[in-house]
Design a protein around this nucleic acid. Structure first.
Ligand SMILES: NC(=O)c1ccc[n+]([C@@H]2O[C@H](COP(=O)([O-])OP(=O)(O)OC[C@H]3O[C@@H](n4cnc5c(N)ncnc54)[C@H](O)[C@@H]3O)[C@@H](O)[C@H]2O)c1
Ligand SMILES: NC(=O)c1ccc[n+]([C@@H]2O[C@H](COP(=O)([O-])OP(=O)(O)OC[C@H]3O[C@@H](n4cnc5c(N)ncnc54)[C@H](O)[C@@H]3O)[C@@H](O)[C@H]2O)c1
Lengths: 215, 215
DNA sequence: GAAATATTGTTAATTAAATCACAGCTTCGA
DNA sequence: TCGAAGCTGTGATTTAATTAACAATATTTC
């Protein structure tokens, strides 16, 4: 079927991921003073093919200056229009332990349309303090803070045994996107976008392919 | 084409991931005293379908007692035979900063066939100390330590600007599997299994689907 | 002990993603 | 000014992954 470049069409998940990655490389190119880039060059920076790059770019309806490659600045902007929300989105980290802190510290350093503006915990030694540059609230104030600060995305880094319960509270509080770093698979309603990353599983997968390489 | 249950066949990547996840749920079931489980029950614990579960289990050549569901203990063992290496594999964490420490601390608590037995860094305040329960070596001793301790898997959590260089050293040192947590895509030879996880990209993807939900 | 029910294992169909193949611009060099 | 070369954009094809469909089989019920 034909792919139009409608504004309202949703892109394939993998394409969205690659666009995010392309953008980072492109920003790097800009810093190095590179103004144009060919599809095969961008492909080489990531490990994929020129066709894949062109197809991804086709999805977002951008077309290059023929034979000069893509205008880096323009492409960055077009990707931004696709990926970013105009006035940014607010993010909260739930469970500010080792992983939550590592993530928050890392992310707060970056400028971005996504802002980590609150963290939540149940540990009274953390509540009401500023940790990794962000204020920590008691979980009991979740709904109130989510509403007043219009937080739409949550990053879940609580211990496994409270993951399901906290996830339910997040849904109830009106969160629209959830990144789950716990090892517990979550069930959330369809309208909440859920991304789960399980480091243990990833590591076991690597181990499997080390033991049983392909072909 | 027909899938035989040959010992040497390599499984689809997604199937390997799901098997790892199933195993964790199954171990949990065992603790709760559950001895048998139906495909649809296992499916419910993860968010997938009974058919998917049955197909995954078909891949590993295990068959249940008809109508009683799968024997949990047996299934755990069969998955173990597929995923685990007999005497385990040794793992190193490269760059023991915020993320490396979070990961190591978390993982060392678990018993597993995978053992984090070394970490590496260039920061002299860390070198030769025990961090998160594991000894930290200077990166300069990488090859030597990898060889003597037979380390086959590395977890890369160094700053972005040294990622490529360190990855090359890891390959050179004989690492066979690499988990890349940096935001730099790496190029490694085909025989090294590479898994990359980019948290920023994941978060941007969540933001995109929050902004543009599917249908 | 026959019919109804529940569940598996597997083939076939569908869907989604990646790759191939090539026509069509653009620029360049002669 | 014309042909050759280099890249892009996209329809057609292939490949991989998921889902549907159902026959086979064990268990329960009456
Ligand atoms: N650390 C890692 O690299 C890693 C790797 C894989 C998975 N995980 C998962 O990430 C999660 C967090 O890991 P961690 O190492 O940061 O653990 P951690 O114990 O360091 O941190 C957990 C934090 O959550 C807080 N907390 C507990 N209950 C809470 C609740 N109901 N609401 C809000 N906060 C609550 C705790 O006070 C603590 O601050 C775990 O579920 C773990 O399975 C972590
Ligand atoms: N923290 C996160 O949650 C997060 C999220 C996304 C990506 N990352 C990526 O993970 C990497 C590490 O992040 P972090 O937050 O832990 O950073 P960090 O600065 O806390 O840790 C980096 C560690 O690597 C060490 N190091 C520096 N150069 C090295 C070298 N050549 N060899 C070995 N060790 C070296 C440093 O001494 C430090 O201990 C970064 O590349 C970052 O892009 C981290």
């Amino acid at each position: 079927m034909h792919q139009s470049n409608d504004y309202f069409m949703t892109l394939p998940e993998r394409t969205v991921e690659r666009l995010s990655e392309y953008r980072r490389s492109l920003l790097q190119c800009l810093e190095e003073g590179k103004t144009h880039i060919f599809s095969h060059e961008l492909a080489n920076l990531h490990h994929n093919t020129a066709v894949q790059v062109r197809r991804d770019i086709m999805f977002i309806g951008y077309t290059s200056m023929q034979r000069k490659g893509y205008d880096v600045r323009e492409l960055v902007d077009v990707i931004g229009e696709i990926l970013d929300s105009e006035m940014g989105l607010n993010v909260a980290v739930i469970g500010i332990g080792n992983l939550g802190r590592a993530f928050t510290t890392y992310f707060v350093g970056k400028r971005s349309k996504l802002n980590i503006i609150a963290t939540f915990d149940v540990d009274t030694t953390k509540i009401d303090r500023v940790i990794s540059g962000v204020k920590c609230y008691p979980l009991s104030r979740l709904k109130e803070v989510v509403e007043t600060h219009q937080i739409s995305i949550a990053i879940l880094t609580v211990p496994a045994d409270s993951a399901s319960e906290v996830a339910a509270q997040l849904v109830e509080a009106g969160i629209k996107g959830l990144m789950n770093f716990t090892t517990i698979p979550l069930n959330v309603p369809n309208e909440v976008f859920l991304d789960e990353y399980d480091m243990i599983t990833s590591l076991e997968k690597v181990a499997y392919f080390v033991k049983s390489p392909r072909e």
